[in-house]
């Protein structure tokens, strides 16, 4: 007997937001890591001091290292969300960096999650985001980011200083392109 019911048969639908500008990815390719690192150092310290609540939902995973692999970037980020000594470092993919959990996906997808505008479960179902290593740590990080009033992107746009100027320009542009129909 054939199965009856009402399961729809829609094809897999990606919830992936619009694409990261190709030029930006290409422009970053020749940038040496030592030029990126001061921005990352400052960024992680500023976010940690502005958002102490971020660490509460991480529980024991403040000591877990997260590898964040953004498809279009020529480097991998390693985040250690230890409130006492937070760090965010850039590494070439060839480096075998130690990590406890990994999160990977296209820039605009991860940007949407960070900006409180993307549902990571749906993005995972659609295979736009991948998680590896310690799943509990990855879930905690997602929940911590999701519970922020506003978002980390808001924070970066509010922080002053010439170091952030190019980053702020890019984030403002990406938000605008996200809002575009």
């Amino acid at each position: 007997m054939p199965a009856s019911g009402s399961v729809s048969d829609e094809r897999r639908q990606s919830t992936r937001p619009s694409r990261f500008p190709k030029l930006a990815g290409l422009a970053l390719r020749p940038v040496p890591l030592f030029a990126v690192q001061p921005v990352l150092n400052r960024l992680v310290r500023d976010i940690a001091s502005r958002r102490p609540e971020l660490f509460e939902r991480l529980g024991p995973h403040i000591h877990t290292a997260f590898a964040i692999d953004v498809e279009e970037l020529p480097f991998v980020l390693r985040l250690l969300p230890d409130p006492g000594n937070p760090s965010l470092t850039a590494h070439r993919r060839a480096e075998n960096i130690p990590f406890g959990a990994s999160i990977s996906g296209p820039f605009m997808t991860l940007f949407a999650i960070m900006d409180g505008d993307g549902d990571s479960d749906a993005l995972f179902f659609a295979r736009d985001v991948e998680v590896g290593g310690n799943t509990e740590a990855a879930v905690c990080l997602r929940n911590a980011l999701d519970d922020l009033e506003g978002s980390v992107v808001d924070d970066i746009l509010e922080i002053g200083g010439p170091l952030y100027a190019p980053l702020k320009m890019m984030l403002a542009y990406l938000r605008k392109s996200e809002a575009r129909p």
């Binding site: 019911g5 009402s6 399961v7 729809s8 048969d9 829609e10 094809r11 897999r12 639908q13 990606s14 919830t15 549902d119 479960d121 749906a122 179902f125 659609a126």
Partner: peptide, 12 residues
């Protein structure tokens, strides 16, 4: 809401 469903599928 299909894009938010598990497996990209919905049922009654």
């Amino acid at each position: 809401l299909i894009s938010l469903t598990e497996g990209g599928k919905q049922t009654e």
